[in-house]
Amino acid sequence: MKKLIFILLIMFVTSFDVMAGDMPEVKVGEVDPNGEVVTVKAFGLVCDFCANAIEKVFMRKDEVSGIDVSLDKHQILIALKEGQQLDDTEITELVTDSGYNVKEIIRSSSGVGE
């Protein structure tokens, strides 16, 4: 019985960790657990000024709850508020207007609250 409880406890803790691991993290703002998360692979992100520019431009949008720019991954992670949308055209426009280029846009839910 003790062994069973121990195994169940391990399973519970592990499943909790997996759920937490699925939750993306952002440097600015927060991830809405019921919102969409958009990953943008971009060209030209080579320094902190580039990342800072992307943050500022996207965080002005009412639809955005959080953002994370990774120079290592050449990517922008955009967390949207629940029920909000930014279509590919608008995202591409925002990135281009900031001085950079979009390579690819990948869409997924935050994986939380579903």
């Binding site: 060209f43 030209g44 080579v46 320094c47 580039c50 050449h74 001085g99 950079y100 280029n101 390579k103």
Partner: peptide
């Protein structure tokens, strides 16, 4: 005036 920018995956 920024006349031209060349963005690549790992350079600018």
């Amino acid at each position: 005036n920024l006349i031209k920018r060349w963005n690549a995956e790992a350079s600018q």
